[in-house]
Design a binder for these strands. Structure first.
Lengths: 69, 69
DNA sequence: TAAAATTGTAAAGCCAACTTGACATACAAA
DNA sequence: TTTGTATGTCAAGTTGGCTTTACAATTTTA
């Protein structure tokens, strides 16, 4: 899975800390998400998409067996 | 969070077991999701939405503090 | 009504999402 | 050089998504 979190955050001129406070998660969570260390919960994915005014499926790009076959 | 999984599954004339096999999860997982016992992972939410030909945000309805404030 | 199909409950276990905290690196400005 | 801001690593702990197994209840169909 790829994510455009970093790109969209920078587009909106936000720091990791600002984003983390807006979403009420730790800054470490933002770092890890941007680095692809793990995948967000559905709720967090939704809040991220809301923040960036886009659909979840625009913010996260699913690949291979993350799609149905 | 509310979900339309059950409604969409029945619309498509699928049993819980058929759906679980298509998504490669346990039937118990489908039961628990339909009953609202827990929230799916992002990947599973995506596969469900794909199965039902809709966006994640159409299949799951976020409420209250599941939205940004 | 009896059999079969579908849906449901309960419980124990694994692993990943997320947290907290402490510290490191890089860069810009004073 | 020193200070401040932004980003990063590491590690240990908690929680909850999902699994498996076994069995019970409900609905459908013959």
């Amino acid at each position: 899975m790829k994510t455009l979190i970093r790109e969209k955050r920078i587009e909106m001129d936000m720091t990791q800390e600002e984003l983390s406070k807006k979403l009420k998660v730790s800054r470490q969570t933002i770092i890890s998400l941007e680095k692809g260390k793990y995948k967000p919960s559905l709720i967090l994915a939704h809040k991220l998409a809301q923040t960036f005014n886009c659909a979840i499926e625009e913010l996260f790009i699913f690949e291979g067996d993350e799609n149905i076959e």
